[in-house]
Amino acid sequence: MRTYSLLVDAHLINRDPRSAMAVSDDMINAGFEPSKETLKNLRRRCFRELDYKKDAQVESLAKNFQIRMGS
């Protein structure tokens, strides 16, 4: 789980929300639940990069895992 979170963070630092989202999808497919912090960081980067489609996907993931993101 920690390795996936680090990979997501690395992509976010490189301003690549698409790759970060792909890693989070891999994490979920491997049976791990993303942390609230990881989803919040991913959502923040999507918003900063104006990637509203990925932002909506992050919001959907949060709902699926019953994680309250706030606004």
Rank of each mutant, 00 (worst) to 15 (best):
M27P: 04
S24G: 00
L39S: 00
A20M: 01
F32I: 04
N41A: 09
L6G: 10
I13P: 01
K40M: 06
L7G: 12
L7Q: 15
F32E: 13
A30S: 13
A22R: 09
E37Q: 14
M27Q: 13
L12W: 01
D26C: 05
D9K: 14
D26R: 13
D16S: 15
P17Q: 08
A30C: 05
C46N: 08
D16A: 12
F47W: 09
T38M: 15
L12V: 01
L6K: 15
A10Y: 11
F47E: 08
G31V: 03
L39A: 01
F32C: 12
D9W: 07
H11E: 12
R18D: 10
H11T: 04
D9Y: 10
S24T: 06
K40D: 02
N41C: 07
R18T: 10
Y4F: 15
P17K: 06
F32S: 12
C46F: 02
S24L: 06
R18A: 13
I13A: 11
D9T: 10
G31S: 06
K40W: 01
S19D: 07
R44Y: 07
L12G: 01
Y4K: 09
I13E: 12
D9A: 15
D16Q: 14
A20H: 00
N41D: 11
A20G: 06
C46R: 03
R15M: 11
D26Q: 13
D16H: 10
M21C: 06
M21F: 07
Y4G: 02
R45E: 14
H11K: 11
R45F: 03
A30E: 09
R44D: 08
S19Q: 11
C46Q: 08
S24W: 00
I28S: 04
Y4T: 02
R18H: 07
D16V: 06
A22S: 08
K36A: 06
N14M: 04
H11N: 14
T3F: 09
D9M: 13
E33I: 08
K40S: 05
M27V: 05
K40A: 03
M27C: 11
K36D: 06
D9V: 05
E33Q: 14
G31W: 01
V8D: 09
F32K: 14
